[in-house]
Design a protein around this nucleic acid. Structure first.
Lengths: 145, 145
DNA sequence: CGTAAGCCTGTACCCGGGTACAGGATGCAA
DNA sequence: TTGCATCCTGTACCCGGGTACAGGCTTACG
């Protein structure tokens, strides 16, 4: 009942730009599909699942490179021993995210403190030391992004 | 005791690449300094304060464009009525950050759920519906970055 | 005065995740 | 068979925040 999908159809079904499909293909996230005699891509229905997986993993904070690894981790099934690397990666990613949350919470706390102190001019704040903002530590990195 | 700073000195004092100073100057974050007869930049000591402000604001989650606004908000002093826009912006930024935290917390919860469920293959997870990961909602944006 | 360290300019490149555009070739229906 | 939608390819561009490099000039010290 559902034959192969053309790229536009798949893109629409997945809520993704059509160029993005090509992009994912280049990045090795999406397998190269069969082509029609004239060279048009014809995707199997499973491609939609793959895209869902990609989007979900991305939403979970994995980069496309990481997603690519996760994907052919699933398809290759290294050896046939059912390895636990997905859990390992998820655990690692979880602590990354927890670190990011902690960082953002520190930032939020600083902002709240500055608001409470009623600062209204950063230049002044930075010179008079009444302001709770941490102007000193320049060696820290930017906002956890 | 502290005369004008040369660009390398300022860069080092601020813990910033020297190119970054030029970059900030182009972006309008750092005022164009006086030049030596031969064209070398000579920064007043206040430039270091400005850099501290920039770095701090950046650390608080403001983009460089926003920092630029904040900076000449402080220097221009629109009219002479002491406006509360710094507070407004800080408040807005604070809720942005709180939203990001909430988003990351939802993500962390998903990851924890997936770990608890013992998922080890995303492709399988996406088809069998035993997995707690939200594969359905493709319309959401990527990770709050 | 010579020489080395430091500075100048413009331009190009990096990351990650796409998006846009031009100029042809196909697919499908009437 | 014609016409229009869709698809193909390659290449270039976008965002944000810088960084790198080449080729030439200045400054400071001995």
């Amino acid at each position: 009942m559902n034959g192969p999908l053309r790229s536009g159809e798949l893109a629409q079904a997945a809520g993704v730009n059509q160029q993005t499909l090509r992009y994912y293909e280049r990045r090795g996230l999406l397998a190269e599909p069969v082509r029609s005699p004239g060279g048009h891509r014809l995707y199997p229905a499973e491609a939609l699942t793959v895209l869902r997986v990609i989007k979900t993993a991305q939403r979970l904070g994995f980069t496309l490179d990481e997603v690519a690894e996760l994907v052919d981790l699933g398809t290759h099934r290294h050896g046939r021993r059912r390895d636990a690397s997905l859990q390992k990666r998820a655990t690692a990613k979880l602590s990354e995210i927890e670190a990011r949350i902690a960082d953002l919470q520190a930032i939020a706390a600083s902002l709240r403190a500055a608001l409470a102190a009623g600062c209204d001019d950063l230049a002044t704040c930075a010179t008079t030391d009444c302001c709770p903002l941490p102007f000193a530590d320049l060696d820290r990195k930017g906002p956890a992004s």
